[in-house]
Amino acid sequence: MNWDKKIATRQSYGEALAELGKESEKIIVLDADLSKTTKTEIFAKQFPDRFFDIGIAEQNLISVAAGIATFNFIPYVSSFAVFATGRAYDQIRNSIAYPKLNVKICATHSGVTAGEDGATHQMIEDISMMRTLPNMTVLSTSDDTQTRWAVKEIAKINGPVYLRLCRLASPIIYNDDTKFEIGKGHQFGEGTDGTVIATGIVVAEALKAQEKLKKQGIDIRVIDIHTIKPIDKDIIIKAAKETKKIITIEDHNIIGGLGSSVCEVLSTEYPKNVIRMGINDTFGTSGKGEELMKFFHITAEDIVNVYLNNTQN
C-alpha cells in the first residue's frame, strides 16, 4: 500500500479506456460535454472517430448509446454520476437495462468527495438506483489498480454495467499483479474482532483504521466490495460468522447503498447487527473532498471511533 501516491479513479478510467480502445475496435466512447473532467478526453484524442460528444443532454446520451450497442459495439458512456444516473434514470431503465443492451455507464464525481461544486453535483443515491435495476451489474472501485482492471473486465460482460468513479485522488491500495474477480470481494486480514466492509474511495480509510486499531491490539478484517451487484454473499456471511462487529462504510447515502446490500444478505442468511456508516440521509455541501470526508464522518478516525464506542455487538 502506498499512502503517499494518489490518483483519482476517473484518471485511471480515462487511461485504461484509451488502452482498451487500442485492444478493441468495438469500444465507442460517449460523453456529455464533460470529457475533460471525466477523462474520456484521453480516448477522444487517440480515437476521434470512435468518440461522440453528445453535448449537455444526458438522456439523449444514454439512449444514443443504447442504439450504438445494437450494432455490436461496446459503448462506454460518461458523465458525472448525478447526471448519468439521476438525469437519465428512465433512459437507463427502459433503453438499456430492460433490453439488456451492452452499455457501460462509467460515472465520475460520485459521492460527497466530488467536493466544491456542492450538493447538486454530489451523487449519493446512484448505487441505490442502479442496483435496483434488473440486468444491471454495479461496480464501485477503490483505487487505480482495481479501476484499470474493472474498465477492461466489464467489456467482457455482455450486458449493462454501472461503474462508479471518483473525482478526488485516493491512495493506491493494490499491486499491479492483484487478481480481482467480478462478484468477489477482496479481503484484507483474517481478524476476528470486527469487519469493516467498504467500497470505493473509503476502502483506503478502512485500511488505515485497521492499522490504527491493530496498534491498540484489535484485529479487524477489511473487505473491499468492488462489485455491489452481484454482491459477494459468501465473504459477508463468513465475516458475520467469524467476527464480532460488522461495520459498513461508503461515500453514499446509508439508505440503499453498500450498507443496505450487506443488510439484505445478512437478514436472510445470518441475521446480525450491522453498523452503517456513510452519508446519513442528508444532502452534501460545498467544501474540499478531504474536508467533506471529515465533515460527514467517513474517515479512518471515524471508523475507529465507531468501532470503539459501539457496544451493540
Binding site: F52, Q59, N60, I62, S63, V64, A65, A66, G67, I68, A69, T70, F71, P75, Q91, S95
Partner: peptide, 8 residues
C-alpha cells in the same frame, strides 16, 4: 435518440 445511435 436510439435511432441516432443506430445511424451513427
Amino acid at each position: 435518440s436510439v435511432a441516432c445511435g443506430m445511424a451513427l
